[in-house]
Amino acid sequence: MAEQVALSRTQVCGILREELFQGDAFHQSDTHIFIIMGASGDLAKKKIYPTIWWLFRDGLLPENTFIVGYARSRLTVADIRKQSEPFFKATPEEKLKLEDFFARNSYVAGQYDDAASYQRLNSHMNALHLGSQANRLFYLALPPTVYEAVTKNIHESCMSQIGWNRIIVEKPFGRDLQSSDRLSNHISSLFREDQIYRIDHYLGKEMVQNLMVLRFANRIFGPIWNRDNIACVILTFKEPFGTEGRGGYFDEFGIIRDVMQNHLLQMLCLVAMEKPASTNSDDVRDEKVKVLKCISEVQANNVVLGQYVGNPDGEGEATKGYLDDPTVPRGSTTATFAAVVLYVENERWDGVPFILRCGKALNERKAEVRLQFHDVAGDIFHQQCKRNELVIRVQPNEAVYTKMMTKKPGMFFNPEESELDLTYGNRYKNVKLPDAYERLILDVFCGSQMHFVRSDELREAWRIFTPLLHQIELEKPKPIPYIYGSRGPTEADELMKRVGFQYEGTYKWVNP
């Protein structure tokens, strides 16, 4: 592979701008107003304001973009700056750019259920340069409990009458099928589907988006991507930290609602779906819905739930269990780990287990898709061969690698495990991989909904998990304890083995 010439960040961002501006969906010269509902909250200060700053800094926003914060707290732009700027990672050389960014910011205080507050917000936006005809993007960085009041008031008082209007809704989209349907029906009564952007930030990850290209742009994968060759698929999300004093919020939802029903299920769809007619948003989402419709409700015998306990040999936070978090209700049975087996009941995947695993306070930070292939028929190497695996590593250190057998150097035919490896950090030294939120917010500006969740996708996802969630809430089974920093409950490994996964433990990928 030829040595790549190092590029400056300015040059890299210039390439990104060229890609972005050559499309006809990006209205570079139009006025846009980006409204952050819930501007005083954690999500706004840690993710949304920093993301908008990065896009502005790199010249990736339309030229005439204004940012308006809205929340109940009586704040000023200076207050917003004070709480969000520490997350910007701005350099001293960017000081003038930073001043320009905050000059485009404003803030309006108001209630979430008060019509007069929204009329005041609308008047404020109209007073901005060309504000009355601007395109408006409303980001709901809010708890779902206020979605209905907020969307109703936005629709009645704050819509642009000339430009387009788009609304970005953060997960969780309800707690179960019934609450999700209620919320979807409410929002759909106010906005068209092409105006609604239900954001799952995992769909903005580079390697998640790469799944489609790997599958449908490489001839070698087509013939082997089926039940005849693939023994099982494992989708993993692991965090090495616990709730760390923020367990009160987590306890309301648990690990299945927080990660599995959305992030992991979306990745499953991209692995299992048929080739779409095109890369058009609805063509892709149509195929994802077909996959979900082929999955039956989760069966309790295919589920393992766990909850982390303190590690007596650990240090600091590792010595504390979930129930030691003062914000967690006493005696909570909320799971911090889950392993679930699903089956896609169609011709391509009949009988292939899709194993979804996620948890907190585990032994490493990792998100990946792992396809394990069947054993080689007619073994001539005296059971020395391990199964081939194709691994798409989402985070950290984005990579695609194939675990395969090669001859060990020497005189004899002794096979050993090795890999074919594409590590993004080595291959793409001159490429700026956008943060997931950067990519998705740019998608909203461009009107691309491919990486957002459609209402029928959402409904099918909740259909699969709601009976299990209701059973857990009714019966309150005690989750299996696992030690902070471990791989999780051993019962999860036993479940995976029972459905056909072979864990060798003899080879570990190392970032080159």
Rank of each mutant, 00 (worst) to 15 (best):
Y70Q: 14
F250N: 00
Y107L: 05
R81L: 14
R9Q: 11
E93V: 12
H124S: 07
R57T: 03
L16N: 15
V208K: 01
L75H: 12
Y249N: 00
Y249R: 02
A231Y: 04
W225F: 06
Q22H: 14
N126I: 11
D58I: 06
L98G: 05
L140F: 12
T10N: 12
G14Y: 13
F34M: 14
V108A: 07
Q161L: 13
Q195N: 07
R81N: 08
L20K: 07
S84Y: 11
S106M: 07
E99V: 12
L75V: 12
V233W: 02
F66S: 08
K205Q: 03
P172G: 01
A231L: 11
A217L: 06
E94F: 04
Q195I: 06
M125I: 12
R166V: 03
G131F: 11
S117C: 09
E93I: 12
S160M: 07
G204P: 01
I52W: 04
G254R: 00
A6I: 07
F66H: 12
K97R: 08
S132E: 12
D228N: 10
F26W: 13
G23S: 06
V169R: 00
L121A: 08
A109R: 09
K89N: 15
E170F: 00
E63H: 11
F241G: 06
D228Q: 13
G163M: 12
I80D: 02
G38C: 01
E93C: 10
E85N: 07
Q178T: 10
L55E: 06
F87Q: 11
E252W: 07
Y118K: 00
K82Q: 11
H27P: 08
F241C: 08
S29L: 11
D181K: 06
R198W: 04
A115T: 10
F221C: 04
K152Q: 11
V12S: 13
D114N: 08
Q28S: 14
Q83S: 15
F237W: 10
D24K: 07
A149V: 11
H129L: 12
E148R: 09
W53F: 07
R136G: 06
R9L: 07
P50R: 09
Y139M: 06
A115R: 15
S188E: 12
V12W: 14
D228K: 05
A90F: 14
E244G: 10
A217F: 05
Q28K: 12
V208W: 01
H155V: 07
V146K: 09
